[in-house]
Design a protein around this nucleic acid. Structure first.
Lengths: 125, 125
DNA sequence: GTCGTTGCAAAGCCTTTGCAGGGAA
DNA sequence: TTCCCTGCAAAGGCTTTGCAACGAC
């Protein structure tokens, strides 16, 4: 994997300008606005390449399946609004990892997924 | 869904005596020790039935896929040891839900997944 | 005897892979 | 020209569904 094709450039561009974590489908839809012939297999292959390169990260969201986001955003958590179905990135992390496990466990990392209503949808109710 | 078949009884029994969240494969393996003819489709159908009945809960674990556990265990989190590949249930929950979201968000529930080494495997290192 | 339930196989998703043609360097 | 990369189609996992036979009540 060394050649900069229009497909790879398009996928990188889509990831860079995304407002939050994206599904394969999202990436495909936006990518095809740049390269109409863009194929699903190509997206999967390039995402794998970008993951191996440490540029993006895959999240397995319990409600939404596989999502992808840039690693440069750092550690944060995800809020899923069950009304508008959007995923929000929450800045910071308040979890003191070691305080949640009994003695003896060594915590190396964690994922937190939150569910509820976003400010927009909360107002409407 | 009203009839108590040997298959359903077996699956309930397996769930009740499990040491932690179980995968479909686990349930199938242990269930077949009770009813050898037990079919995958039957397991899926009965798990769905038990979920609808509120007796068990499905967890989509980011590393391990779909797992099932009894709801009566209450809210807790899961620790995955990447050495022995077991999942541990951690008692209690220290997350103050509202402290992790910006103003306006309404948090209704959350999942926390922890990764690292269990006491057993931590000792060996 | 009813009709809910099962086993089997087929079909559906999502993701990966094989292959031949195409394009970046 | 080389050989990495793409599109397409087939194949792999996991889960769901259609259907005829079975069995709980």
């Amino acid at each position: 994997m060394k050649r900069q094709t229009v497909q790879r450039t398009a996928i990188e561009q889509v990831m860079r300008h995304s407002g939050g974590p994206m599904s394969i489908e999202d990436i495909l839809i936006y990518g095809r606005k740049i390269v109409p012939s863009l194929n699903q297999a190509t997206v999967y292959r390039n995402l794998k390449f970008l993951i191996d390169a440490g540029r993006i990260r895959q999240i397995i969201h319990p409600m939404l399946g596989a999502l992808y986001e840039e690693t440069e955003k750092g550690h944060h958590h995800h809020f899923h609004c069950h009304q508008c179905n959007r995923v929000f990135e929450l800045p910071g992390c308040v979890l003191k990892q070691d305080s949640v496990v009994p003695k003896g466990f060594i915590v190396e990392s964690h994922d937190i997924f939150l569910y509820g209503l976003c400010p927009c949808c909360a107002q409407e109710v």
